[in-house]
Amino acid sequence: MKKSVFLGALTVASLTAGIAAAGTLDDVKARGKLNCGVSTGLVGFASPDANGKWEGYDVAICRAVAAAVLGDNTAVEFVPLSSKTRFTALASGEVDMLARNTTWTFSRDVDLKLDFVGVNYYDGQGFMVPKALGVTSAKDLDGATVCIQTGTTTELNLADFFRVNGISYEPVPVENNAEAQQQYLSGACDTLTTDASALAATRAAFENPGDHILLPEIVSKEPLGPLVRHGDNQWGDTVRWTLNALISAEELGITSANIEELSKGTNNPEINRILGTEGNLGEMLGLDADWAKRAISSEGNFGEIFEANIGEKTPIGLARGLNAQWTEGGLIYSPPFR
């Protein structure tokens, strides 16, 4: 009898713990800090600079969310996660959100109980080879040794690509990008494969980036985006609409330079709704009216973040391509703020 009462009490305790964990927005506010899972170090996307300050394309998303929710874009605890540990860390509540070059797939969304809130980079898997190898197409890679980060979708795409083309390869599994880079540069593998953006970022960090080329084949669709735990819709909405605010800001011409002026009120009602001078969108999210203004002022709008971290003027040198606004022929498109 006593035992069952004791167990019952425990069940209630753990249930309430589960419910409390579901209110991520309140948790983050109470903690005063956002725990954001990022890559263990991929220049341009997420890496600490010489002073240990995290910067990059994915990092900017974390900072924007922190600015929107907490009003301080430095109130972020960056948690570097390997591709193997990232989902466990998110599911267990160790991090509030992931912004870590993570591909949106059916099984991750449905089976792993995660919620992708959008796409911040449309990517595809590519191959990098040393120029000296004389290979011009991924289909010439029969019998090659391929370095691949284990626990990623690229691992599965790789198997499919070689199987479909009827050619063989020898996979060399590596834990993280740094190790992949070492193995590739020492010649322990002929080619390195991962998302094309990450390849470009990796190559930018090489001593002689010109000695390496990316093969033209893009063998998969890799929509990368931030994600949160399944089941906490309020928190999911917060992250989703923070990302959308950055995208809409670019589309509507709100930049970090003119945001102060625009927030005094404009004759474009959508800009006014985003910046909180009209309507009560912030209140609906459980935030204040200035949430989106703070998010955009954090590191600029979507385009500014892209150009500052991975754009053509940076060593990584990625063109907008698919990641241009829909008005410019790309796929980046935010639902309306209404």
Binding site: S83, F87, S107, T150, G151, E155, P173, V174
Partner: peptide
């Protein structure tokens, strides 16, 4: 796993765990 040798921790406890999410 430190050197990418595919033992049972690398296959079942590594890639399979990761791809299926069945920790």
């Amino acid at each position: 796993i430190a050197v990418g040798y595919m033992d049972i921790t690398g296959t079942l406890g590594g890639i399979t765990l990761n791809q299926t999410g069945r920790e």
